[in-house]
Design a protein around this nucleic acid. Structure first.
Lengths: 333, 333
DNA sequence: TTGTACGCGTTATCAC
DNA sequence: GTGATAACGCGTACAA
């Protein structure tokens, strides 16, 4: 643990070459003779040289850091994605810089300003409320990878999950168990994916030629409390249903609690399916059936795409298809 | 959204002063005449100048960023603390740089190297496995705030939660409900707090003159699966108990699932108390009684302490006392 | 293939 | 009070 850090210049002196040569070797900017390469490599080793990213940022305009706009740093949903990003970027020597937009377009815009002022090399946006236009504008100056949308633009790559198919899978699962009166707890309508999930729910009914009972659709806001309220509203209105498909797991947790409070058992009285397959969902009582959304993988893919963008390559990653994980919260009608 | 960023030099030109004066005004480094102050302020406004943290870092040795060593970026436990840190630092113009040590001393050491190479102004360590000596060494070069320990050193501030009292509260709660055969699921013994929580459990028994039944103590590792296994081990060994105190909520979730699988109801057959009071604990079935650990507050306090340290002030923050949150997982024996 | 010289945007150290 | 000037550590034209 040396106190004063070794500089590239010292390495150059030690190796008997010029600083630029060291720089070139470090960045692979040009072909360098093998013997000098050796000498520099050794100098780096013996001196314990570590490049200074700050200086690098000033000089080369690259900071080896990637801004990541998430919605809340403690979100159980995005958390896994952050982990995937961190993992993948770390391997390439990049550091993520996490900022939280709190589902607020203005705040997200501020976040992006902060990231730009910190000279990040690129920005990964996890869903968010920013307009597509705003995102495109950013992508004109920095590589951008965005999840939860399908956008096309130069310097911008988007990675979207097939929410509709996922929701359809969940609903079909319930249908195939013999359920017909299936309530739907919707997500925050400001999220495009919430709408897609509702479409999937409807599509499943349409596919078997059954009508959707609109009175069984209850709006939520993607958090636990809203799931609880949605179920209470349904119950208070005297709606009858044998199953619930919740647009995300967090609302499903709230829904389960509401059912429990009213003396309804899962899955004996009501089957329950969520969406996202959070880590916690394996340990609820009963363990929750859910549409698996591979968030950590998503994070890795987003990071990989960013690395591709940075290297001038065309990202070739794609999202895995939705999959239903059947646990113990669903049973035959 | 200007493309090319305005520099301090341009501001100086616009205001008709020297760059140094602008810098002085920005940093309050020296007294500047009011008229120049006005002129510079206006130039900054009209030009939309934003200081470049990267250049600042190179020149002044300050990057306005604070390294935060957490254990996993998606940990439901540390997540809230990260949020508190982000909040508090943001208000002061600092950005947190999160890195994950994954409960591994070597990895944490690497994290700290990364943070130092990125020239963070200070480091906040959330618990972790680093030795006290290593932490002290770091604090000789950078301000350090560490949680989950009680260390004293110049340039180092520690913020510890009273785990023993918390655990004692939980156990006393069970005792006061008439429970006598109270199983204890321990935490990862590599965490000092795990030991403290066990001591609290024992202290509660000692206080009422009751012996602890060692066969009711089952080791866990702080994650859900280990809680499940711990309970299964107890049950398989034929141990009888009417309550469980789990050293954290995550293990309590696992424990609840194990009980459920064996047909044991919470709280009718077995009362259950956790520790940490995770956000999710309000929505388990039944909602979990737990010792509230104010993680977000902890994060805010740690950040505040860091800002104090940075400003040369002696941090004056202190942790709130433990509090038991009684929900529906506990009932009279 | 390699070295020289300069610039990146800001702060610190001097003089004035 | 204020303004030159020199760093900070590295990347990169440009020259050789």
């Amino acid at each position: 643990m040396s106190n004063k850090s070794v500089t590239l210049e010292q390495v150059a002196a030690h190796a008997g070459v010029s600083p630029s040569t060291v720089s070139r070797i470090l960045n692979g900017t040009a072909v360098v003779s093998d013997d000098k390469k050796q000498a520099v490599a050794e100098a780096i080793r013996t001196l314990g040289f570590v490049p200074n990213p700050v200086a690098r940022g000033l000089a080369g305009g690259r900071t080896l850091s990637i801004g990541v706009v998430t919605q809340a740093i403690d979100s159980p949903f995005y958390g896994a994605a952050l982990r995937g990003i961190e993992e993948q970027l770390g391997q390439a020597g990049y550091s993520p810089l996490f900022v939280s937009g709190h589902w607020n377009a203005a705040e997200e815009a501020r976040c992006i300003e902060v990231l730009r002022s910190r000279r990040v090399d690129g920005i990964i946006v996890l869903t968010g409320r920013l307009s597509d236009a705003a995102l495109r504008a950013v992508s004109r100056q920095l590589p951008v990878v965005v999840t939860g949308r399908s956008l096309k633009a130069p310097g911008l790559f988007s990675l979207n999950f097939d929410n509709q198919t996922g929701a359809r899978l969940a609903t079909e699962h319930l249908l195939s168990l013999g359920h017909r009166r299936i309530a739907f707890i919707g997500g925050d309508p400001l999220h495009p994916d919430a709408l897609e999930r509702e479409r999937g729910y409807r599509a499943a009914f349409a596919a078997v030629g059954l009508p959707v009972d609109e009175s069984l659709i209850s709006a939520g806001a993607y958090h636990e409390e809203s799931g609880r309220e949605a179920v209470e509203r349904l119950l208070d209105a005297g709606r009858r249903f044998t199953a619930i498909f919740s647009a995300n797991d967090q609302m499903a947790f709230g829904a389960a609690l509401a059912l429990h409070r009213r003396g309804l058992r899962v899955p004996q009285d009501v089957s329950l399916v969520g969406f996202d397959d959070l880590a916690a969902s394996s340990y609820t009582i009963p363990p929750l059936s859910s549409v698996h959304q591979p968030m950590q993988e998503l994070g890795r893919l987003a990071a990989t795409a960013m690395l591709d963008l940075l290297a001038g390559r065309k990202p070739g990653v794609a999202m895995p298809a939705p999959q239903l994980v059947s646990r113990e919260s669903t049973a035959a009608a």
